[in-house]
Design a binder for these strands. Structure first.
Lengths: 203, 203
DNA sequence: AGTAAAACCGACCGGTCAGTCGGTCGGTAA
DNA sequence: TTACCGACCGACTGACCGGTCGGTTTTACT
């Protein structure tokens, strides 16, 4: 039943897959509907039979990706290890994704200015919440069980995500070793800080 | 003597100012040369008298901004306070910039896919180094004088910049209080980490 | 004032691209 | 066999945009 994709569904999926490849490699404006159609082995007419506009195709592609990631990260969010272990696990899951899937996460921030109005808001809100909210769940529990210092879980989550995005980004590759090594550094920094000594003293 | 070229320079500056406003508000492809010309109160012909192409105009705009920021941050880079104070100072200087000037820093990451080849590399390299390198100078000194734990200055700098970018970003405004308040949190996190207790013990 | 050069104008061109539309084709139900 | 329908095709269009160019105005300097 889930097995039997109708012909229509299969074509839609093929178009979305092609769009992912192309939108990751270039930017919204430079990817033409002809290119997507050709890469998906349909014509432009066929593409427009399945999607009403380029913009809606982009949004469909993003929401599709979002749902996949939500499922992927659910394991880390609901598991029972320490806060630290679970954050490492979640980040490692992300790191192990193929390059294209990782890049998709950054697409919204990159292409967001190509959109406007309702569609834009929908996309931003959905995507900004995807990763940060799952991280926040983990961090809130870390605070509650005393593993993390009391504080605002939300800003901590955003900080953690910011650090991870630096680790993940390709532009960091030529700056500092492997992504795995950087992951270790970033997690250490997040938990223990950069100061030389446990500040001790007046506290 | 500088007077002689003043008219031309004034027009160029007006065009660059208009371009900044528009490119920050939208993305590279959606800002037309006609829009820039109109906003700068010249015609397209006039614009092309001063800049040979839209791409080169964009690059000029970016390099202009880069130089302003370099000068602005020099104070923090060369002053004598503690590492922590200087990082706070530098970040505060950045926070006090008008919105548009702050956003420009994120433009490169946003629009980078609109370019290719030599121009692209030049821009990326110049911009990636602008803030991180000045931060790295401060952090290296912090490590040398024992204020920070020994480690890789570069990844620490990138991490700090990543945290600041999250603090600065408008999208964070509706998530957590004022930018100034977030700045405090982020600096604390960077130096002391999020763990509940000074890990102490075995060290 | 006279003049050459720089600054500026705006109609125009070549090309691109999202989206359209009349039509084809293979399956399927009656 | 016929009638129908969704999937798909691909030539076409209308709007737009970066860049050009011949011509006009302004500036700077004698």
């Amino acid at each position: 039943m889930t097995q039997t994709l109708t012909k229509s569904e299969a074509t839609s999926a093929r178009i979305i897959a092609a769009a992912k490849r192309l939108f990751v490699a270039s930017n919204y404006a430079d990817v033409t509907t002809d290119m997507i159609a050709k890469a998906a082995d349909v014509t432009k007419g066929g593409l427009y039979h399945h999607f009403p506009s380029k913009e809606r195709l982009y949004v469909s592609m993003m929401l599709d990706d979002l749902e996949r990631k939500r499922l992927l990260f659910e394991r880390s969010t609901t598991s029972r290890g320490s806060c630290r272990d679970r954050l490492v696990q979640l980040t490692r899951d992300f790191l192990e994704l193929p390059h294209e899937e990782r890049e998709l996460t950054r697409l919204v921030r990159r292409d967001i200015n190509a959109f406007s109005g309702r569609e834009r808001d929908r996309l931003v809100r959905a995507y900004q919440r995807a990763l940060p909210e799952q991280v926040e769940t983990i961090i809130s529990q870390g605070i509650r069980n005393g593993e993390l210092a009391p504080g605002d879980a939300r800003i901590l989550s955003w900080s953690f995500v910011a650090l991870v995005e630096v680790v993940i980004g390709d532009y960091a590759d030529h700056v500092y070793g492997s992504a795995q090594a950087r992951l270790g550094h970033v997690v250490d920094l997040f938990f223990d800080g950069a100061a030389a000594l446990p500040t001790g003293g007046t506290q």
